[in-house]
Design a protein around this nucleic acid. Structure first.
Lengths: 119, 119, 119, 119
DNA sequence: GTGGTCTAGACCACA
DNA sequence: GTGGTCTAGACCACA
């Protein structure tokens, strides 16, 4: 039996996903400067190291970039953003399929249920 | 900005969903006796009162019933179970739509993405 | 606001009513010998004085009588029993009317509700 | 022999019934704010958790609703209140019939007694 | 302040 | 043992 209260996902990954969503949905605009690590960490109520780790990962993905002295910015490369949106969307879709399969539903039933829901 | 780690959901509701999934997916069978409140609480690492609350709710939903001195059982009413499966499925589907809309995707794009994923 | 948890009625009156019901409904038969005070008190989990008081009252009503040496008996006078039944019935009916009036129902509505219930 | 003093009913259910009567009879008006959980608990001389439980149940019935930070209110939906009045009335009527049947009275006698009482 | 959640621990009826 | 009730008391989010 899988009881997994209080999280499951490590915090830094939750932060990554949350930042990705904000960039991809346009709450952070291309080229926009984001707050300093310490500030973001304070806002999120996490350790600055944890936030740093998340930001580094987001840079590796190309969604952020930093300039030594002037701070950290959202990428201006729109196709990178579109790509990230597609990846996130696939994750959400795949999660849903996994959940429905956990319920004991077959592919056919799932698709039927989604079609039914769309109406 | 809304950072909300730890899922947000109260423990007893997480337990409810977890039990629903187990019943609906057939890991608990109709008519099967489930462990005593105190035992389930120990397994889940929560207070017996918290588990009690979740189980009471599941009784109200008709998925469980209790016999005062002999224990608690999964309903034998298969249609109640099917109904619960449908409701859960709808929740998962609706969550996914909500997530994708948060990404800034329109209905059309979403459906396209799902169709694309299915292949 | 009238909160009156845990009773309302004094215990000895609750005992009286309970004994009356048992006699009137025939669970105790006319002429039948009833257990000794101490025993009844033990069964009911009350102080023997409390039970004594209730029995004395029931004797005053003519539902019980005692013979010095041989114990206490249910009356053989059937009309006394019928009379007691009528009185109890009136109490229950009157309580119900009082309760329904407390709900803000008028006489007409009450009678209608009872007629409706009878069907 | 079933002696059961103290009503038998759990406190939270007694509270529920008491609140239902007060709402249904108009002592609490539709839309009226009721006192805070802790205050009601103090008034009733019970633990806040017990009062909370009763209020939660009354919300589920639709007789109350709560706004997280501003308090708890009586529903403005008059038809819900009327429905609750009807249900309570049926309970009282049904209790009375049960009591009279316990006395050994047949349906016919009961109805006659009620008719007689009404005059 | 207000509703809501959670834990710890006691006690009860029933069989 | 099993479900159920109740108290005491802490802590949280929200405004």
């Amino acid at each position: 039996m899988a009881w997994e209260f209080a999280g499951g996902q490590p915090i830094y990954q939750q932060i990554i996903r949350s930042m990705e969503i904000q960039i991809v949905s346009g709450k952070y605009h291309p080229g926009e400067k984001i707050p300093a690590v310490r500030e973001l960490a304070a806002q999120a109520g996490v350790n600055p190291n944890t936030m740093q780790r998340a930001l580094t990962e987001l840079e590796r993905e190309g969604l952020l970039y930093s300039r030594r002295t002037s701070g950290r910015f959202v990428t201006e490369n729109e196709s990178t953003i579109r790509e990230a949106r597609r990846t996130l969307a696939e994750q959400f879709i795949s999660e849903m399929f996994k959940n429905l399969e956990n319920l004991g539903m077959k592919r056919g039933e799932i698709i039927e249920a989604i079609d039914h829901w769309k109406e």
